[in-house]
Design a protein around this nucleic acid. Structure first.
Lengths: 210, 210
DNA sequence: GATTTTCTGTACAGTGTGTTCAATAACGTC
DNA sequence: GACGTTATTGAACACACTGTACAGAAAATC
């Protein structure tokens, strides 16, 4: 807690921080794709040469800068969902806002990143990442049983669905709260279309016989 | 079927065809991002100037060339899934191979497009597109009832999930057939995690009481 | 065969990349 | 506070790609 013996140069930390901040600001302003390295350097008040002293290219800076955001994303997965839940609990159950609160916090950033000016590397990384951090939770719910479908595939399914839902949410100006989104997402993935489309309400099997 | 009165210049058709083919070949070889317009022109044996005579940029050529592939994607959605189906039908029911056969046919192309060298514009377009062409099917299943969750959100969910699953499939060297994938995807979205993780098999509610 | 249209090669200005280098400024340490 | 070390700087460089312009060649249509 007291004076930590500084090993890394103050200048390095300062430069990297400035570059990271500049990148984030510019992403929100113009979109990732439209940013040149000169732009980043200018915004950070740093020589372009200095940029190359620290990072190979834009992607490298992006992912270095993202570690903080990523860590938060993991964090928002810690408080997972109620383990034993019934379809009827929709409306009543309290859900963790989870990822959606995180996306809401960085809405401008994420909106820019999924736009035409965004980055496919980033999106695909997020998807892989989500799938990965989802697996322990799935494994826990499985509790030793054999899944009907490979767990990796289920994780990929859920991760993709989450990205799809977040894309929809951001593109439609977030018409629901993070908590509502989280609940809908949770119940939808848990009970599927059959539930969401209300096909099990009262087992109405006869319908316009031809 | 006989001589259609030609209105468009033969050269135009030829050039555009060559450019489209060149683009597709190069995407598979190097990935979309790594291709320059000079590359496309060279491969098509066409002057770079000619390229600009037909298209504004790479994306425009991509989407012009994609119309055929897109049409097939719609087509693969025509024969949709059995409407009344029970979880028990997994293993037995015959599923339309649907989108997955289409992706298998163009596996190299799609694999390149979701890679680091791919295109975010393309992926996001595919996702929006899938969501859009899914809606009629969902509406039909709804049959007048009120959905528990907005239909657009459900469509976004399914579209994202499908992209996620396809990404997994392609990145893992397609360890299942298109038909198997289609069935798993269908049942997973239909009955959700609760089914996939086998939590309703015999309602085992007691488990390691602390 | 005459006319219209497309294609071509070259050229140009502009922008961005990635690297080198010697000079300068800031740092940590003693 | 002086020291040696290290990061930063600006200028310069070669290279690649973009987008546009233009006049002549080639190929289509009629």
């Amino acid at each position: 807690m007291n004076t930590i013996p500084r090993k890394i140069d103050r200048r390095i930390e300062r430069t990297q921080q400035l570059l990271a901040q500049a990148l984030m600001d510019l992403i929100i302003e113009r979109g990732y794709d439209a940013i040149s390295i000169q732009d980043i350097a200018d915004r950070a008040n740093v020589s372009r040469t200095t940029f190359y002293l620290h990072y190979k290219d834009k992607d490298e800076l992006l992912f270095a800068s993202m570690s903080q955001i990523y860590d938060q994303l993991v964090g928002s997965h810690e408080g997972f969902m109620p383990i034993d839940i019934a379809p009827a609990d929709f409306e009543t159950v309290e859900c963790d806002k989870g990822d959606f609160q995180h996306v809401a916090d960085y809405a401008d950033f994420y909106r820019a990143m999924i736009s035409k000016q965004g980055s496919i590397v980033f999106i695909m990384n997020v998807m892989s990442y989500l799938a990965e951090i989802m697996k322990p939770g799935l494994q826990a719910r499985l509790a030793g049983r054999e899944p009907k479908i490979p767990l990796d595939l289920i994780a990929a399914f859920c991760a993709g669905a989450e990205v799809g839902v977040m894309k929809w949410w951001l593109e439609n100006d977030m018409p629901y709260t993070a908590e509502e989104m989280s609940r809908m997402q949770f119940f939808l993935s848990m009970f599927g279309l059959k539930w969401a489309l209300g096909r099990e309400e009262k087992s109405v099997q006869e319908k316009q016989q031809s």
